[in-house]
């Protein structure tokens, strides 16, 4: 595994880690028991995927760090996740909308990566894609059900979409790291993935009777700085203080 792949692998792993952690915050708080279990199970899949990506990143880096070291001992500016996944849970509608927007990109991304030239990366992507296909099926049907639901649920889903729309551009706009990944054979055509993702969003949001905000149609990123690590939102620091405190307070603790 080449060392140049590290930033790309961190992006894949950190997206799964931060979104997985966000979803785990719902544990015991969801509106009904079935949804509580569903959110926790989705979180579990993402944390499992995160471990595979971050182990690969640690190996490629060659400094002897494993997934736990990378998850627990980096600071916020070293994280490479999208701004979208670190946004607060808000109400159930906002959590489901954030999940849907991410799933709509994550699945075509993983499907394309499963065919990439690097066999280890392709294997992790193929394993993850099966789980994420299920995530998308669920978040899509909930977005449609709640969007095309009561006036109350429709209003909440539209406001969730309006709040999260500025973060979609970062996900769909390839930067130097994405392009290098494609050129070096461990990435994908980010433009193909974006096209597939936009088609999915067009169809689902229309079925959900939701208006796509203009900011989502714009080419290029609107708010950015997550996947480069240059400017995360303030939320990431709060997530890390909760996620990492035990390893920070008791270095090397295990059980």
């Amino acid at each position: 595994m080449q060392a140049e792949a590290v930033p790309f692998l961190l992006r894949m792993g950190d997206n799964a880690l931060i979104l997985g952690h966000r979803l785990s915050e719902w544990c015991g708080h969801a509106p009904v028991l079935e949804e509580d279990i569903a959110l926790a199970n989705t979180a579990l899949d993402l944390i499992g995927q995160c471990r595979m990506w971050l182990d690969l990143a640690g190996e490629a880096e060659g400094k002897g760090r494993n997934a736990d070291d990378l998850a627990m001992l980096r600071d916020s500016w070293e994280f490479r996740n999208l701004l979208l996944v670190e946004q607060p849970n808000g109400d159930f509608g906002q959590t489901i909308m954030r999940q849907y927007l991410f799933d709509a990109w994550h699945l075509p991304m993983l499907n394309a990566l499963a065919d990439c030239a690097q066999p280890r990366i392709a294997a992790v992507a193929a394993k993850s894609a099966r789980e994420v296909a299920y995530h998308l099926a669920r978040s899509r049907s909930l977005v449609i059900g709640l969007g095309d639901g009561t006036p109350e649920s429709h209003g909440r889903m539209q406001s969730a979409l309006d709040n999260l729309a500025p973060y979609v551009g970062e996900m769909l706009s390839p930067d130097a790291c994405d392009i290098a990944a494609e050129t070096n054979g461990y990435g994908v055509s980010a433009e193909d993935v974006a096209r597939e993702c936009r088609a999915e969003m067009d169809m689902t949001l229309a079925s959900a009777t939701l208006d796509m905000p203009d900011v989502m149609r714009r080419a290029g990123p609107v708010r950015t700085g997550g996947k480069t690590g240059r400017q995360h939102s303030e939320h990431l620091g709060h997530i890390l203080s909760e996620l990492q405190w035990l390893q920070r307070a008791y270095p090397g603790a295990s059980w």
């Binding site: 579990l44 899949d45 993402l46 944390i47 499992g48 995927q49 471990r51 595979m52 394993k127 993850s128 789980e131």
Partner: peptide, 8 residues
């Protein structure tokens, strides 16, 4: 092989 990647 794991069933699901996060299966404990």
């Amino acid at each position: 092989t794991p069933t699901y990647s996060g299966c404990p």
